[in-house]
């Protein structure tokens, strides 16, 4: 028995993270170590800072006026842990390796193929042949290939919401990220389309580290390997599978925090 070997490796270490907008604290005193054990699902009341937390991991908060932060975030981006605020890691490179999908599908107003191809070309500079191979690969990976292979040149906005969201996921996957951030990826979808995305995430969790915000606890329980509970800008709990499988305990937490 060697517990040290079976111990999962951490891929995200956060120390004393504070984030403020216009001097108003939004995330406070976050200390957290995430290890590989399936999808990490973030739950919490609206306004508790879930989106801000995700955006801290790809430094997208910096895009907004009035942002200031302190603390340290380390992510496993290439074998070793890297401090994402260190100066020799380009923020564009960080964002490529930490891909993000948003609440409502935001396809570009171009064709299905070009949605994947354009960022791929701009970010990686791959030649056309490689890009086309990658396009097929990722569309298959998100199970969209059979649905769109005959109309790659048509506008992406003509796809259904669920298909668009899978296209957005494919667009991110084409850039070969290490970590996926999903901000309520099914919030704008119907029941069936949500189900397909959930199945997809359960597949993808073996290839990527996934941190997802969910608006529903049921969904969290279906897909999570661990659950983070946020409240008023703080992480209140990190629940492992055995803890939230116990529905009574979860119920109790729910009443307490949401």
């Amino acid at each position: 028995m060697e517990p040290a070997l079976t111990q999962p490796k951490p891929f995200c270490i956060i120390k004393n993270l504070h984030i403020l907008f216009h001097g108003k604290p939004v995330l406070q005193d976050i200390n957290l170590t995430l290890t590989d054990c399936g999808i990490t699902v973030l739950v919490g009341a609206s306004g508790s800072g879930k989106t801000t937390f995700l955006r801290a991991l790809n430094r997208l908060n910096e895009y907004y006026p009035g942002y200031s932060a302190s603390g340290q975030i380390e992510l496993a981006l290439s074998g070793t842990m890297e401090n994402i605020y260190q100066t020799d890691l380009q923020v564009t490179e960080l964002r490529r390796r930490v891909g993000m999908v948003f609440q409502s599908p935001n396809v570009l107003p171009v064709s299905i193929a070009q949605n994947i191809n354009l960022p791929l070309k701009l970010v990686t500079g791959l030649d056309r042949k490689k890009r086309e191979e990658r396009l097929v690969e990722v569309l298959q990976e998100v199970h969209l290939w059979n649905e769109v292979k005959d109309r790659l040149k048509t506008k992406a906005s003509h796809l259904s919401g669920g298909q668009q969201q899978r296209l957005c996921l494919a667009r991110v996957l084409a850039l070969q990220p290490k970590i996926l951030l999903l901000d309520e990826p099914t919030a704008s979808l119907d029941f069936k389309a949500s189900g397909r995305i959930e199945e997809l995430l359960l597949e993808l969790q073996h290839r990527y580290r996934i941190i997802a915000v969910s608006h529903s606890l049921r969904q969290a329980r279906r897909i999570a390997g661990q659950i983070l509970v946020m409240k008023e800008g703080r992480i209140e709990h990190l629940l492992k599978k055995d803890q939230f499988e116990n529905s009574e305990m979860l119920q109790q937490l729910l009443e307490e925090f949401l």
Binding site: L60, T92, R96
Partner: peptide, 16 residues
Amino acid sequence: DEYRLIGPSLGLSQLQ
């Protein structure tokens, strides 16, 4: 706002 975030979130530079 959602549209504006597409580029940066994919790792495009500001000019791109």
